[in-house]
């Protein structure tokens, strides 16, 4: 089911074209990442979805309904909104901040309190310690968690996030992003996330919309942008991190067909229990990681196993894996 559809959105600020004729669709439960360099119009585009910015032309449909068919406040109460600077109300406690939208929606106080407590607990902010604190008493990471709890409080089906991890230091950022990814609360949500961080985009996106100077450069699943860039801008944009991204984007399933057909073994023949076989959905990156932790045997190369069928496994060494990876990248880039 289609959750969000943007049609031919255009926005000018005086003579400067911030967004030019951008269209996209997001299926319910999917995550779209708006990616691009600073000033490319990605934030403007996001803010058109909840009418914090009104487009000069074009339409936005949420669940098939034009956003202009209802007052902007009502529209916004149905969508979570998280921004880089968090923007917690400094004169409200943590609990009051989280409860803002449910209260605006007129939910019963007891239900609001229970929901707030549940969310704080789930976001690792024990309510008995944090509920009555003020935002200024929290660290940056804690504030961002409260911001997220606030966006989720009324359980909106759609969440908009504008560089939600942008203000955090790299370590906090990675850990919060992991929590974020694993949050059951977010599994069912339709999300649109703005970032300029390529790794973040690849980690979270079902689809990436890459923008430059207000125009769509490419729209598609991450590996498509990576392997089949539509133009030079896309290629350059991923250039520096291309290899690292490919290692993450490609799965063992993508490279299995490049391995010699001969060495297939019975699963039962694996005697060493510490060398559990990998699933074929594991990324090349993770496989290399595992190889690097495998002890070097008395004779031959370090080897890991990948399960290819119910009862068969195949061996992988650095040499066979990298050779297959290289062939797979070339094959995929050529459109195979």
């Amino acid at each position: 089911m289609l959750a969000i559809e943007a049609r031919h959105l255009t926005k000018h600020y005086e003579s400067h074209a911030a967004v030019q004729n951008v269209s996209f669709r997001v299926e319910a439960g999917q995550t779209l990442v708006l990616l691009g360099p600073s000033g490319c119009g990605k934030t403007t585009l996001l803010r058109m979805l909840n009418r914090l910015v009104e487009p000069d032309s074009g339409t936005v449909l949420i669940n098939g309904q034009d956003v202009r068919s209802q007052p902007p406040e009502l529209l916004r109460r149905g969508m979570g909104y998280v921004i880089q600077q968090v923007g917690l109300l400094p004169h409200y406690t943590v609990a009051e901040n989280v409860a803002v939208v449910p209260q605006l929606l007129g939910h019963a106080p007891a239900a609001v309190a229970a929901r707030t407590e549940e969310l704080l607990r789930r976001l690792h902010l024990p309510p008995e310690r944090f509920a009555n604190q003020y935002p200024s008493q929290l660290s940056g990471g804690q504030q961002q968690r409260v911001g997220l709890a606030r966006a989720l409080a009324a359980d909106p089906p759609i969440i908009l996030l504008d560089e939600p991890f942008g203000a955090l230091d790299p370590i906090t950022r990675a850990s919060i992003r992991r929590e974020f990814r694993e949050l059951p609360e977010l599994r069912r949500k339709t999300m649109v996330l703005v970032t300029h961080d390529v790794t973040e985009a690849f980690e979270l996106a079902d689809q990436i919309l890459l923008l430059d100077a207000g125009r769509v450069q490419q729209l598609g699943p991450p590996r498509e942008l990576l392997l089949r860039p539509a133009n030079d801008f896309v290629r350059r944009f991923f250039g520096a991190e291309q290899l690292a991204l490919q290692l993450r984007a490609l799965r063992l399933a993508d490279v299995l067909c490049e391995l010699p057909e001969t060495d297939v073994f019975e699963l039962a023949s694996l005697t060493n229990s510490s060398n559990k076989p990998l699933s074929s959905t594991a990324s090349i990156h993770d496989t290399l990681e595992k190889l690097s932790h495998t002890p070097v045997p008395a004779s031959g190369e370090p080897t890991v196993w990948v399960q290819v069928a119910k009862s068969t496994v195949r061996p992988l060494t650095y040499a066979t894996l990298m050779a297959a990876f290289g062939r797979a990248v070339r094959r995929l880039a050529e459109g195979g």
Binding site: N50, L52, E73, L74, L75, R76, R77, G78, Y81, I83, Q84, Q85, V86, G87, L88, L89, P90, H91, V100, V101, L104, G147, R150, A151, L160
Partner: peptide, 27 residues
């Protein structure tokens, strides 16, 4: 008043009057 606070308040669905009464004036 911190622009981010006002932006967030609007984004959450406070009306202009609510932003004024509950956010801008108190701050």
């Amino acid at each position: 008043v911190d622009a981010a606070v006002v932006d967030a308040a609007r984004g959450l669905g406070l009306t202009d009057g609510q932003v004024l009464r509950r956010v801008e004036l108190p701050l």
